[in-house]
Computed example of a mutant assay.
Amino acid sequence: MPALKDRIQDDMKSAMRAKDKARLGTIRLILAAIKQKEIDERISLDDDQVLALLEKMVKQRRDSIKHYQDAGRQELADKEQEEIVILQAYLPEQMDSAKLEAVIAEVIAATGASGPQDMGKVMGVLKPRIQGRADMGQASQLVKSKLSSV
Rank of each mutant, 00 (worst) to 15 (best):
Q81L: 08
Q131T: 11
K35I: 00
Q94L: 12
K146N: 06
R61Y: 02
K21G: 01
H67R: 14
L76G: 04
A77V: 05
Q81E: 07
G72V: 01
I130R: 12
Q81V: 00
Q60N: 09
R62H: 12
K79L: 11
Q74S: 14
D20G: 08
A33P: 00
D48S: 12
K66E: 09
R73L: 08
M12F: 03
M12C: 02
A102M: 05
S64R: 15
V143G: 01
D70C: 02
L142I: 13
S140H: 09
R42M: 14
I104A: 05
G112H: 12
A15D: 01
K21D: 14
K121T: 05
L53D: 01
R17A: 07
K19R: 14
A113P: 06
D48H: 07
T111N: 12
Q117D: 13
A109S: 14
A71L: 04
L31N: 01
E83H: 11
D46A: 03
A110V: 07
Q81A: 14
I43Y: 06
I27R: 03
I8W: 00
A77M: 07
H67Q: 12
E80N: 13
T111G: 15
E101Q: 13
A139K: 11
S64G: 13
Q138E: 06
A3F: 09
S44K: 14
L29C: 09
R73D: 14
A77W: 06
A89H: 06
S14I: 05
V143N: 01
Q9S: 01
A105K: 14
M12I: 06
R61Q: 11
M1S: 07
L53Q: 04
A52W: 05
P116E: 15
Y68P: 02
V122F: 08
P92Y: 05
I43V: 15
D48P: 00
L126S: 13
K144G: 08
D63V: 11
K5L: 03
D40C: 07
L53A: 02
G132S: 12
V50C: 07
D20S: 13
R61T: 02
E55A: 02
Q9M: 10
L100P: 05
H67A: 09
K144L: 04
D47V: 03
K37Q: 15
A18T: 08
